[in-house]
Amino acid sequence: MSSGSAGADVVEPNLTSLLDLVMQLLMFFIMCVNFVSNQAAAEIALPDSQAAAPLEDKNTDALFVNIRPFNSSDPILIGKYSENPKYLEKLSEKFQPGQVYVIINGQEPMSLGSFRNWLRDQRSRAILEKGGDKDSKLDTIIIIRAHRETDYKDVYEVMETCRNQGYNQLFVRVLKV
């Protein structure tokens, strides 16, 4: 009776706080998804720069090329993948210590040679879609994110590969300090 009477009095659950929380969670997950779909690989420590230009509006058609040498004792690699030791194992099976590998979003880490092949396939597919001829230039912007320990020759090789495949707009990502 006591509880029944109180319930019969007014039954209106307050949904406001519940909705607030739901919206909060929704927003959180939306932002998380955005981070995941970012093409930037987490294991790249970019070099610092003061005079670099700030990023322009997001290029819809950009290809991020992440480059870094494999080093199984690198704290960045260990730290980023401490929860995912299989990734490190896979890397060490695939690459020699010091060997440079390329990370493209949605692709397995690849060596420079397989990157060249992959980019060629990518180009021919893009040309098929757009219907240009073999030598036509591509609008896709290549954004190179090279780890600071990478040798110059390896970065240059990636640049050269991109240029040879007809990608002429290249940017180098740095960390603005």
Partner: peptide, 14 residues
């Protein structure tokens, strides 16, 4: 601090 920025670069012609 720590915002990514970019440097446009030019490559030598083939």
């Amino acid at each position: 601090s720590g915002v990514e920025a970019q440097i446009p670069l030019t490559l030598p012609p083939p």
